[in-house]
């Protein structure tokens, strides 16, 4: 009896798992499959699940026919710069919130949490005007500034919760031994909290890489587009080359998914931390 019930249960588990995976991964299958099809097969009916002829050339054509390399390096440059600036601003601020007891500390934590939830749509109009006034439309700076600041409150908040988990005693001992505050941060806190800092940095990088609305609004020159808006422009063309767009999608998605998986476990904890007591 018991073993029959167990087998039935196992079948149910694997069945539900398989269906869930199919539903969740279906579009990625479509993406991969289309990226390996020749034009003729892409626009044939009925569509095929697996390419009849695997056509790797899409991955070469996309570099030759579109400024995809430029899009990627734009995205990369913007995201890396934002990540560095974000760290430089967020680490000291998170240290202050985590270690110093000053009036209004709790209020700041509240504020960072609330700001993190703001929609960019709310501020996009004044920001557009600001960028126009500063002469920054169609520049990297416009995206670097907005993305750095927009990801800031989340970073401060994540970092401060990591800093809270580092015992204060070590820093106090160092202070007594004659270290300056800056030294306790750079020599003690940062090395100990390194995993948290890396997670936060990865998350910032990903958020900026994925950003769409700011880039859509501030950038109109083709060569300044980051990858998201660059690919979006495929859709605005009269005839959409879906096989090339899907090839671009593979290139844009794969590295990000890998990065995300590195940071993800800490991320879930961070977002729902208050509610999950372990």
């Amino acid at each position: 009896m018991g073993s029959i019930r167990k087998t039935g249960q196992a079948v149910a588990f694997y069945g539900i798992s398989a269906v869930s995976l199919f539903l969740l991964l279906f579009p990625f299958f479509v993406m991969l499959s289309t990226s390996l099809k020749q034009v003729g097969e892409v626009y044939s009916t009925p569509p095929t699940w697996i390419p009849k002829v695997v056509y790797w050339k899409n991955y070469i054509e996309i570099w030759q026919q579109y400024p995809i390399g430029r899009y990627i390096s734009n995205s990369f440059f913007i995201a890396v710069t934002c990540t560095i600036l974000n760290g430089l601003l967020a680490v000291p601020a998170a240290y202050a919130v985590s270690r110093l007891r000053f009036a209004g500390r709790k209020m700041f934590m509240y504020m960072f949490l609330v700001v993190q939830m703001f929609s960019p749509v709310i501020i996009i109009m004044p920001l557009f005007k600001l960028m126009a006034v500063w002469g920054l439309l169609d520049t990297y700076q416009s995206l670097i500034i907005t993305n750095t600041v927009f990801t800031l409150s989340f970073s401060i908040w994540m970092l401060s919760s990591y800093f809270n988990n580092v015992p204060v005693d070590i820093e106090q001992a160092a202070l007594i031994d004659g270290c300056s505050r800056v030294q306790t941060i750079t020599k003690i806190l940062i090395p100990i909290a390194a995993p948290g800092i890396v997670t936060t940095a990865i998350y910032t990088f990903i958020s900026v890489w994925n950003e769409f609305m700011f880039a859509l609004t501030f950038i109109s020159r083709a060569e300044m587009r980051p990858l998201t808006v660059g690919l979006y422009n495929f859709i605005r063309l009269w005839t959409i080359n879906w096989h090339h767009l899907m090839t671009g999608a593979v290139i844009g998605i794969v590295p990000i998914v890998i990065l995300f998986m590195i940071a993800e476990r800490n991320l879930v904890k961070g977002l729902a931390a208050g509610a999950v007591k372990s």
Binding site: L24, M31, T34, P47, W209, M246
Partner: peptide
Amino acid sequence: TLIVIPWAAPVPIAAMIWMWTFNSQFGLL
């Protein structure tokens, strides 16, 4: 590990893939 992928993928790009998946003539859906 695998179910994380929809969350991990850049939303704008995932949306474009879906747009193609929904294509009435050539879409796999």
